[in-house]
Every structure is written in C-alpha cells, then in structure tokens.
Design a protein around this nucleic acid. Sequence first.
DNA 1: ACAAAAGTGTTATCAGTACACCCATGC
DNA 2: GCATGGGTGTACTGATAACACTTTTGT
Lengths: 246, 246
Amino acid sequence: MEELDKILNISVDCVVFGYDITTKSLNVLLIKRFLESENKKEILVDDYVLTGYHVLNKETLDDTASRVLKELTGLTNQYKKQFKAFGSPDRLMNEKDQIWIKSEGFNLRTITIAYYFLLNTEEVDLKKNKHQAKWFPINTLPILGFDHEKIILEAYEDLKVKCLREPIIFELLPDKFTINEVQDLYQSILGIEIDNRNFRRKLINKKYIIALDEKQIGISKKPAQLYMFSKDIYDKIHKTNYLISI
Amino acid sequence: MEELDKILNISVDCVVFGYDITTKSLNVLLIKRFLESENKKEILVDDYVLTGYHVLNKETLDDTASRVLKELTGLTNQYKKQFKAFGSPDRLMNEKDQIWIKSEGFNLRTITIAYYFLLNTEEVDLKKNKHQAKWFPINTLPILGFDHEKIILEAYEDLKVKCLREPIIFELLPDKFTINEVQDLYQSILGIEIDNRNFRRKLINKKYIIALDEKQIGISKKPAQLYMFSKDIYDKIHKTNYLISI
DNA sequence: ACAAAAGTGTTATCAGTACACCCATGC
DNA sequence: GCATGGGTGTACTGATAACACTTTTGT
C-alpha cells in the first residue's frame, strides 16, 4: 500500500544540524548504510548517508521533510528550510550507490529536494533510534554515500550565510542561553574569533534579546546570566528594514 | 524521440526578470496559454504562464533552466538562480490547469524546480518569439495559470532580500550605467525612496564601482557620468567578511 | 533663457573595532 | 585562596541619515 504511494523518482533529504553546547561542536545527524553480499562474506556497502525518503503522492515537500525528521528524532516543529534541489543525472551513479539502489528498488534518476533542520543535540535521544543514527562534527564527516557530502556542504554554506543575516542561530540553542554560548556557536559555525566585549554589547543592546531573572545552575564556576530570544519583537523591528549593504 | 527523454513529473519553471530602464519598471516575461474547444466555439484556457519545460533524462536542472531561457530569448550566460522547488499535490489542480494538462499529456503530480533569471529588457527581442511572450510589470501581473503567481511572488521576495546583500542589481542593468539608474532600480524593486546624495556617495566610494571615461550620449538633457561594476574587485573584497547583522 | 536632470557638502548620530583588567563563584 | 570563566569601559574610526541648492546640458 505505502509502496504504491511513493513517487519513485523524487525524494527529500534532510541535513539535520545539531549544536552540542558542551563540546561546542556543530554536528550533522547521519544514518548507517550497510549491505552484505547474500552469503554474508562480503561487505558491499558500509558508509553513512542523510536521512531521506521518497515524496508520497498526497504529501507536500514540506510534509515529507517533517515526516522524515519525526521518524528519525521524534521531533516536530523544528526550524526547517528547503534550500536546494539536486538533480544531476550522475548523482547516484557510483558503484556502491548503484548496488544500494538495486537492493532498494528505486529510480536511478532521482531528484532530491534538500532541507536542513536546526536544533540542539540535547533534544534528540538517539538510543531509541533504529537507523543507527549518529552525530558527526561538520568538520570530520565520515565517508558518505550518494552525493550527500555535496548536499551537506551546500547546506552548511547556506547556514553560514544565513546566520549572519537572520536570527536562526537561536534555533541551535536551548530556549535559555548565555551570551558566551551564542558567541561560541558563532565561532563554531563560522570558524572565526570574536571579541567578547564587543559581542556582548552588541547582543545585549538588541531589544529582542531578553535578560531573564535566572542564572545558570549546576555549573562549577561562576554561573552566567541567562537570556532568551523573542521572535515577536525581532519581527516587529525588522518589518521594513531596507539597508543596502553590498 | 524527445518525448521519450522527458521526465514526466519533473519540470523547471523560469521567472525571467527584466528591468526596463526607460520606464523604470521591473518586468516578468510570460507566455500565453490558449486552448479552444474542438469546434472552436469555446475558449477553454486563455491566460499566461511562466516558461518552463520538463527535465530531460540526461540533463542537470541547471541545464534545463538554461535551455528554457535560450529557447525563449536566445540568450545564454545570464544570471541564473535556482530558488525553490514547488511540489504541493494540488498545485496543478484547478479546472483550467487540468484541461491544459490533459491536452499536453503530462503528469498531474508534477514537481517544478523554479529558477529566476536577471537581465535587462533591451537584451531581448520578442519579435522573433513563437510563444507570444510578453513583459508584464511585477505589480500588474495578468491572470496566471498553475501556481505561477505564487512562484513569481516568491521569486520576487527572494530578489528583494538578495539585492540588499549581494550585488545582483547590476545584472538587471546594462554594462555601463549611471548612479541614478542604479538608484531608480533599487527604488523600483523595493518600492522605497532613497536619498540621492547619500546613495551617490555610498556607491561612488565602493572600489568595485568604476567611473568610466564616458558620458551618456543621445540624451536630451545633461548627460550623466557612466560607471561599471567589477565583479573581480567585489569578490576580492568580500572573500572573508563576517559581519553579523541580525 | 528655460526646462530637466545631474551633481554637490556639512553636521549629528550610531555602530564597529581595538584593547586589558577586575569580579564572582565553586571548589 | 585560587582557578576558572563571567563580566566590564573608553577612545577612535567609519558609516549612515537628514537636509536644499547650484550646475550643466540640450533645445
């Protein structure tokens, strides 16, 4: 039944970015792709890929992406962005990909609509996961199947550009965060050093960064002030902001 | 032969933006969609759509877009941007769309990868065009088939955002332009008023805006200084520019 | 000489950058 | 009391915003 509903040449692939606040590492969630020969003597395919699935007949592309994320992590309502379609005729043409495709029975010329999701790794419990999902730091990715390395790197580029212009950085952090955590995250994503004093001043002066009546707890050093991000206030301020910065 | 090569459920649609420097109007190039009943007594479909075509089997998505533009305008090497995939199950489901799809024989569940192109209207000669192509100002679009109004408006949104951050504005102008022409174009796209003195200073101070040894000719008033944009210089300057502006 | 569009300067305010030390807390 | 990371202030520079008149040219 479900098989009939699949569009065999159109899929959605999801780059799930998760920030690990304790190791200060921007990670990508990948699943294992593993296939042995019939006699189990030979390993035919053993690498990692993005999660993805075919688009179903009665489903929007956004729905497919949300479904894939939910199955992988149990999460809904995370920040989601459709960032590019990949459809080169040779994108699934290396040897291992062909073996895999044969075993799965889908179309050699499949076009994929790629999404990325932003969340923090603490939200995800990988223990209950059946796909052998695992976090990999963006800078030390394993061998990847299909054209998924390309997809991840393009998603990362888009994220880098976007985090300079839009307040999506907060999607990678818990609701309550410290200023230094935001700075660490920018530094991780962009691979740069930022002056702490200037960064603090800049952020604290924003009306949509709200100081809470709380400090960190359970920390073994001086606990830091916690803040939250108000999307409502941000949107109000930025309705008509036409600064040309080229 | 060609029919066999088409992927029946995947297309590319092209939003061709053309700036008309004399009327100061940002336009979109559309083609006529017209169908009569067999007895020619009734007009079944009479509206406009974007140009687009199915993706061919051995073609990348970018190639499809370039092919469509070339067939429509004769032009190659114009600024091209893949901006979004549209794949909602009901995107081709209104009555006229269904009549049209039946007559053309393609798939009811077609996903389209939408591109936009930037050029200036003077580059295009519509006389030789067989599709009854016509320019429409972005603010006075005709009745549009399929979900093409939605696609155009999303392309326009993307263009608005992008022209504030990247020097794509120059793709809509001739190679040699005046400062006031750039200002008029920004004002057309964004629907805002800009102070001429501040804008001039800002632009002229950019190293990648190069004053030529030429003035306008054939103009009935004081001829203005001509400038050009240097992408090389722009790229050199902006290699590593990590200004966080949220 | 007139109409039309090109071009010009100053001041005030705000944002960004560079830079080094003290403070609060938990252990 | 000490190690750790949190938190602070100032001066300089460059960009932006507000604002109105003169100049050049073709006709």
